[in-house]
Every structure is written in C-alpha cells, then in structure tokens.
C-alpha cells in the first residue's frame, strides 16, 4: 500500500506534473514550429527524431551545454534568479488548470483570480529580468513587455470573468466540469470572449504579431538579449510552458477542459483541444506583420476592451 502523500508527490513530479508538462512543452513547441513552417512552405524541424519532433528538446540540451555569460554591469543575483522564478511561476500557474485529469493538480474556489494574478506576476518578473541585465536592448524590451501588459491585461481579465458568471463558480476546474455536465460550452455561447481571450493570450506569450518586446529587427532579442546558456534554456522552456498555459486556459474556460464522452481518458481530450488552440495561435502568428507598440496599445483599448465589456453585458443580460 503506497501512502497517499507519495502518490501526490509523484503526481506533482511526473504525471501530470513536471515531466508531463515539460514533454508537452517540447511537443507543442514542435507543433508550433512545424505548423508555421508548413504554412510558410518550409519543412521546419526535420532531422532530430521522426519529423524533427525531438528538435526542441535537442535545442534545450544544446543551450544547457553552452557558455553562460553574465554581463559585468548586470545585477548578478536578480539576473541569476529570474529565469528560475519565471519557470516556477509558469509551472505553478499550470497546476491550477486541469490538464491530464478533469480536476487540476491543486484547486480551490477562487483560483481563477489567482491564475490571473500569477500571469501578471510573470510579466513583472520579465520586466525585472530585463532590467537586471542593464543592456539597452533589454531595458527597452522590458518596458515594452510592461506596456503590452497594460494593453492585454484588462480585456483578458474581463473575458475570463464571463464563464465564471454563468457557471457561478470562481474555480477553473469547476468551470470546465460545469460545461461538461450541462453541455453548455462557452465557445458557442460566448464567441466574442473566446476571440478576445486568444488575442490577449497571443500578446501574453509574446508571439507575432505581438512579439514587440522581442522585435528582432529593432531590438536584437529584446528583453532576452543578455541571457545565454542555461538561463536562456530556462527562459525558452518557460515560453513553451506559457504556450501550454495559453492552450490549457482557453480549453478549460471555453472548451470544457479535459472532458469528453465515451469514457476515453481525459488527457486525450485535453491534447486534442489544446492542439487545436495552438494551431489557431500558430496560424495567427503567420498571418500578420508585427504591430508597433502604440498601435498595439491603441488597438487593445479601442477595440478589445469594449468588446470584452460587451461580452460581459451580454452575459449579465442572460444571453451567454
């Protein structure tokens, strides 16, 4: 008889914890890269493993082995700690969203608010990381990260409230379950909310057309410019985990989470639904040119905030 504590510990460590999430992170990076490449008439990753599926993992290992340079002017401690902190935060956010099972690893009434809080903290950590590396490119990139947050955070939070109002719970797990038990999927009943959330998440995970903080042709690598070696590996892993985060959040709030009929394991439904969301995100990434920061902010405040409010008004009027 294995004690319950050990099972819980293993679930955090292996499934659906770290190992599962990391594998998924590499897999989704591959899906994203491969899909964008095919849209652009390229192969994308090709030689590492079947169809290049191991390429993201190979990149990660390569970066781990690379020289790790800390700029002389950098704030050493902060510079060292921030990549770890970012990864930890992204992972702990994922623990509150149902992935492999219909319930999240950890959940409580009100974790929806906690998740939005963690997402904002993640952005602030990015700013601190950029600031501590003291290079011009990083600093400008960091400022742009925060400016971008001012744009996407309000509409994102507003539309996330939509499902909560209808299902009368503030827990992501319960929102997902509620959709399954009532058959009332929010993707159908709150389409505006879904669109706004996906656009905001694009900005959150800093993918084109909102890769303004990393704008290659303007700022080299933006806020990550000074990071190298292991730190860069962690940051890239964080980016991938954030990609799952985006997929899982949309899945849980609007597509009913990892639930489905026929007694098929819930993780299969989770994979299908998030892959769908990630393909949409990849497609949007290939479709647009990068916006300028002022255009992005203006667009978010002029169009997305009113749309998000409209969605909430519709919900409270009983349409959702």
């Amino acid at each position: 008889m294995v004690p319950a504590e050990i099972i819980e510990f293993l679930s955090v460590l292996i499934y659906p914890g770290f190992i599962f999430i990391f594998t998924l992170a590499f897999f989704y990076e591959w899906v994203d890269r491969k899909f964008v490449a095919r849209l652009q008439n390229r192969y994308g990753p090709l030689y590492a493993g079947p169809g290049g599926i191991l390429q993201p993992f190979a990149d990660f290992i390569k970066l781990l082995a690379k020289e790790d340079i800390t700029p002389r002017a950098a704030d050493k401690t902060t510079f060292r700690v921030t990549p770890i902190l970012m990864l930890a935060l992204a992972l702990s956010t994922l623990f509150f969203i149902p992935t492999a099972y219909t319930t999240a690893v950890s959940w409580f009434e009100g974790d929806l608010i906690f998740v939005t809080f963690l997402v904002s903290i993640l952005v602030l950590i990015t700013l601190i990381a950029a600031w501590s590396s003291t290079s011009t490119f990083s600093t400008v990139g960091g400022i742009r990260v925060v400016l971008q947050m001012l744009g996407f955070e309000i509409p994102m939070t507003i539309v996330m409230v939509g499902p909560a109002i209808v299902s009368k719970t503030l827990s992501i797990t319960n929102i997902a379950l509620w959709q399954y038990t009532t058959g009332h999927y929010f993707a159908i009943y709150q389409p505006i909310g879904l669109i706004v959330l996906i656009i905001c998440l694009l900005a959150e995970i800093k993918k084109a057309p909102f890769d303004i903080p990393e704008a290659e042709s303007e700022l080299a690598a933006g806020w990550i410019t000074e990071f190298s070696g292991r730190k860069l590996a962690l940051i890239r892993l964080t980016t991938d985990v954030e990609l799952i985060l985006a997929g899982a959040l949309v899945t849980a709030l609007f597509l009913g989470g990892p639930t489905g009929p026929f007694g098929i394991p819930s993780v299969i439904f989770f994979l299908i639904k998030t892959t769908g969301v990630i393909l949409v995100i990849s497609n949007l990434r290939a479709l647009f040119a990068r916006f300028r920061i002022d255009q992005m902010l203006g667009g978010f405040w002029k169009y997305l905030v009113p749309l998000a409010l409209l969605q909430i008004i519709l919900v409270t009027l009983g349409v959702g």
């Binding site: 095919r38 849209l39 390229r42 192969y43 497609n283 479709l287």
Partner: peptide, 18 residues
C-alpha cells in the same frame, strides 16, 4: 492571405534537402 497560407499547407515544400 489566410487562403494563401492554407494553399501553401497543401503544396510541396520548397526547401531543398541539400
């Protein structure tokens, strides 16, 4: 543009495996 993207998805890849 979206139409063009989807058209390219079906097309043969242009890269050469040199």
């Amino acid at each position: 543009m979206e139409h063009e993207l989807l058209r390219n998805l079906r097309k043969k890849v242009a890269t050469e495996k040199y």
